[in-house]
């Protein structure tokens, strides 16, 4: 397996709904330039957008990092913020602690983390209350027959 290559490292600002989504957009465009399978790009795009919005809605600041290697794509979403007190509850469809402002924009359906889990081949979440959260999302290239 080759060493992972970092293609993008993009800062994400908490509570800034104007720039929110730009990191996921850049991730998508970068993968399209690499000629990666479109269904895989769609999964990466959805998971990255959800993870980016989680940083914007819940954290002070964070970053999105895109890596590729011979086996697939990895997106890291890391933030400094309040963390997730109960990860099992947060993974439950419908559970949300989003602010009224975020809800008014159509967020807070409680589908963010379940959506991320559905889109990824491997998901690791490391979170600490009042410190922050690190989400590692791995996507495997489709096998060609």
């Amino acid at each position: 397996m080759s060493q992972p290559r970092v293609l993008l490292e993009i800062p994400v600002e908490g509570n800034n709904f104007t720039t929110a989504g730009e990191a996921a957009s850049r991730v998508k465009r970068t993968l399209q330039k690499l000629g990666i399978d479109s269904a895989l790009i769609r999964r990466v795009s959805i998971a990255t957008y959800e993870a980016e919005m989680n940083i914007v809605i819940h954290a002070e600041y964070g970053k999105i990092v895109l890596q590729v290697d011979a086996g697939g794509v990895t997106v890291l979403a890391e933030d400094r913020g309040k963390g997730i007190p109960d990860l099992n509850q947060a993974m439950t469809a419908g559970f949300s602690t989003a602010s009224d402002r975020a809800r008014a924009m159509g967020f807070g359906a409680g589908m963010g983390l379940p959506n991320i889990k559905k889109c990824t081949d491997q998901l690791e979440i490391d979170t600490q209350v009042n410190v922050g959260t690190k989400v590692v999302m791995k996507f495997t290239y489709p096998t060609t027959s």
Partner: peptide, 16 residues
């Protein structure tokens, strides 16, 4: 949809 904020365009972009 009834959502008219910029994030609906971001979401549309993500899912083609």
């Amino acid at each position: 949809t009834g959502l008219t904020n910029p994030q609906i365009i971001r979401a549309a972009e993500m899912i083609d």
